[in-house]
Design a protein around this nucleic acid. Structure first.
Length: 684
RNA sequence: GGGCCAGUAGCUCAGUCGGUUAGAGCAGGGGACUCAUAAUCCCUUGGUCGCGGGUUCGAGUCCUGCCUGGCCUACCA
């Protein structure tokens, strides 16, 4: 049997922020799997890249006052440093903004066109007139039309109500703060329904997806006609322009997965490999590791695209759940949103690799990081049990080396060798927590052997020299076996043990044959216990960092952009709470300014004639002379208190008030109603 | 509202096709040891298998109703 050829990917991290411990669940999970496959002799290659396109990148680049290209280059370097810090090793780490990717996108696109899957439709979308671009839902915020909560995102509200951005009251563009307007634009769509039979067959075959995922697809999408997939965005958009549709760009989710192939291609070019061998040869297995949030891109669109363009379909899409910390979602304010770099300042990456391994199973369940359990598992499993075996044996054979022939060990080595297949099956199935349990069981069998044979007593009598060497030879070999099994999870430890024993760990099969007659190098501590003070420090520092630079959600981005002072509210604190009835007593109406003139004898007043529609007119004196010229007001819509008791002033009768805000003097700003409001409309 | 998954010892979880007295690790208790990083080893306490029905000679396991939690999703299955 020839060895398996396997191509593995992790989801492409978005180039909009740093890697954190939540991301690492996936990259550690994948890296373990890749290392396992290589250990088993497979030709296994691991590809990833930064996902670099989309409006969010443009916003971030602007905020940092650099070009998009500069911004993504910096992020990519940071990401790669973070991954390397956790011993996550890619064969190639690319970028979706590469020429390879552009070329492949064009190739996929042509295939879709040739298959007659691309259609054009005109859709209405909110447009930011200031930034001169269309806005995705999450780049619009406003007041929920149902419950009235302010500053809600463009698609749904905290109250649970869902709507389209056009339904929002007082929508605001996150990009510029301008009021978006509805505009029509032509978008390109993939008519996915034509691939329905194929997707049904592929997703429900039971071979490629976890059963929960197959059920999800069936229940949510495949039970009815598949909707056309909007695949283009009008410019400006940081991405690739569609060759046969100038002014339109491929949506980031079109070019992102193609980035898997582009990254492979870069590696092929560098190593004289053929891309077809890796992406068009049915002998090559393709495995994607992703989080459950991006399930449908990878299980509907992506197989559809691959099928149409003639590339290899995923052998398996491995989907994992999210990380929680202490049973709760990661939280910036609680300091549990720990960046990879921050973790590395304080703790050994091996800890996290092992801990995740003990928690990861083949299903999509979320996994929880519990700080107490984290320390406990490392200390008791790795330090107390595993490393301890070497620690208590190595120095006795430092000078003599291992026994020339492997001694009798009551079948312990053989038992552990046999266990190898079961452990391997668990790794293969991504059931790492099972693999870890099985391996630890072996450690629990090794320590009693040493205990029973008392090397510390044997060494007291030179006559027992051979017995002492034999006991330690067994101990060291049982230890080595365990380390071989753990090496996908703990590569650095495996390297160190290989050096200690003068026998680098390169193959799973090494677990089947004991070492004998070889020299041992000087033993040094292989792993430290977890310093819980450092864990706490890491969490505390994560708290501090996010306290002053929290710009993760669009609301905060806007807040940072405008940087509104708190002084204004402080200068005039909120009035006593009132009821809706109290409020309704004040009848605010939209009115149009028909006429305005300066009151010559008054320092502050303008005399306004307001219309409430039809013949309904009011004369109002407003204290805005320093701020507005009469001619600038005429024709405008304002908001007035229409049922205010008329008041006789020195210059005439005032029949209401114009609503305005500001410090006073020239700093006064009249409230206006947006276009569409009509004189006479009540303000609710 | 709908869907999926889970609920087993104080904690984290195993438990195969329905089959003896439901297991492990950690924590707790007792003891031993001193090679080892306050490590290790032996013994031990601890369970109404979420709750109620049903199928069966036999149910942690299968069916059903309910409760709780998590996730997904939305007037649609």
């Amino acid at each position: 049997m020839t060895s398996r050829r396997i191509l593995v990917t992790s989801a492409l991290p978005y180039a909009n922020g740093p890697i954190h411990i939540g991301h690492l669940v996936e990259y550690i999970q994948t890296d373990i799997w890749v290392r396992f496959q290589r250990l088993r002799g497979a030709d296994c290659r691991y590809f990833c890249a930064d996902d670099t396109h989309g409006t969010a990148i443009t916003i971030s680049a602007k905020r940092n006052e650099v070009s998009e290209e500069e911004f993504i280059a910096k992020m990519s370097a940071e990401h790669q440093t973070d991954f390397a810090g956790f011993a996550i090793e890619f064969d190639n780490y690319g970028s979706t903004n590469s020429e390879e990717n552009r070329e492949l996108c064009a190739q996929f696109w042509k295939s879709l066109r040739d298959a007659d899957l691309v259609i054009e439709k005109e859709i209405e979308q909110l447009y930011d007139p200031e930034a001169q671009q269309f806005l995705a839902d999450r780049f619009v915020r406003g007041t929920c039309p149902k419950c009235g909560r302010t500053n809600q995102p463009g698609d749904n509200c905290e109250c649970g109500h869902t709507y389209t951005p056009a339904d929002l009251i007082d929508p605001v563009s996150v990009l510029s703060g301008a009021t978006p307007e509805l505009r029509k634009a032509t978008h390109l769509f993939v008519a996915l329904e034509k691939l329905h039979p194929f997707l049904e067959k592929w997703s429900q075959s039971g071979e490629h997806l976890q059963t929960e995922v197959a059920n999800y697809l069936k229940g949510h999408f495949l039970h009815e006609e598949l909707r056309d997939w909007d695949i283009s965005r009008p410019g400006p958009y940081f991405g690739f322009e569609i060759p046969d549709s100038p002014g339109n760009y491929w949506y980031v989710w079109f070019d992102a997965p193609i980035g898997y192939i582009a990254s492979t291609w870069e590696w092929c070019k560098r190593n004289g490999e053929s891309l077809d061998k890796w992406w068009k040869d049915p002998e090559t297995e393709v495995h994607h590791f992703i989080g459950k949030d991006i399930t449908y891109f990878h299980t509907l669109f992506w197989p559809g695209m691959l099928q149409t363009a003639g590339f290899t379909l995923p052998t398996k899409v491995h989907i994992h759940g999210f990380l929680t910390v202490g049973g709760e979602k990661m939280s910036k304010s609680k300091g549990t949103f720990v960046k990879a770099a921050k973790y590395l300042e304080h703790l050994d990456p091996a800890y996290l690799r092992y801990y995740y391994a003990t928690k990861l199973g083949p299903r999509l369940d979320d996994l929880d990081l519990n700080v107490a359990e984290f320390a406990e598992k490392i200390d008791s499993d790795l330090v107390g049990k595993v490393v301890n075996i070497a620690s208590r044996c190595a120095k006795f054979v430092q000078t003599t080396g291992l026994s020339a022939a492997y001694p009798d060990d009551d079948g312990r080595f053989e038992y552990a060798a046999q266990a190898g297949e079961e452990i391997a099956a668990a790794y293969e199935a991504c059931d790492y927590n099972r693999a870890m349990r099985l391996i630890l069981e072996l450690a629990d069998r090794a320590n009693p052997f040493i205990e029973a044979n008392k090397p510390w007593e044997l060494r007291k009598d030179p006559a027992n020299a051979q017995a002492l060497q034999d006991v330690c030879t067994v101990g060291i070999n049982l230890f080595r076996q365990i380390i071989i099994y753990l090496s996908p999870v703990l590569p650095k430890l495996a390297t160190e043990v290989g050096a200690l024993l003068n026998d680098p760990i390169t193959s799973w099969d090494q677990s089947q044959t004991p070492l004998a007659g070889t020299q041992i190098n000087k033993f040094e501590h292989l792993m430290k216990r977890v310093d819980t003070k450092r864990v706490q420090a890491m969490i505390d520092e994560s708290k501090e960092e996010t306290a002053d630079a929290d710009a993760a959600n669009p609301a905060d981005e806007i807040a940072a952009k405008f940087n509104d002072s708190a002084d204004v509210l402080a200068a005039e604190p909120l009035a006593e709470e009132c009821t809706i009835d109290d409020f309704m007593k004040v009848d605010l109406r939209v009115a149009r300014v028909l006429h305005a003139e300066e009151v010559t004898d008054a320092r502050k007043l303008l005399k306004l004639t307001l219309s409430l529609g039809g013949d309904e007119r009011r004369q109002v004196f407003a204290g805005i002379k320093a701020a507005y010229k009469p001619e600038d007001l005429i024709g405008r819509l304002v908001v007035m208190v229409a049922n205010l008791k008329p008041r006789q002033m020195k210059f005439g009768l005032s029949e209401g008030m114009v609503a305005a805000a500001g410090e006073g003097g020239a700093e006064v700003f009249v409230l206006t109603a947006d276009e569409g409001a009509k004189p006479g409309h009540r303000v609710h």
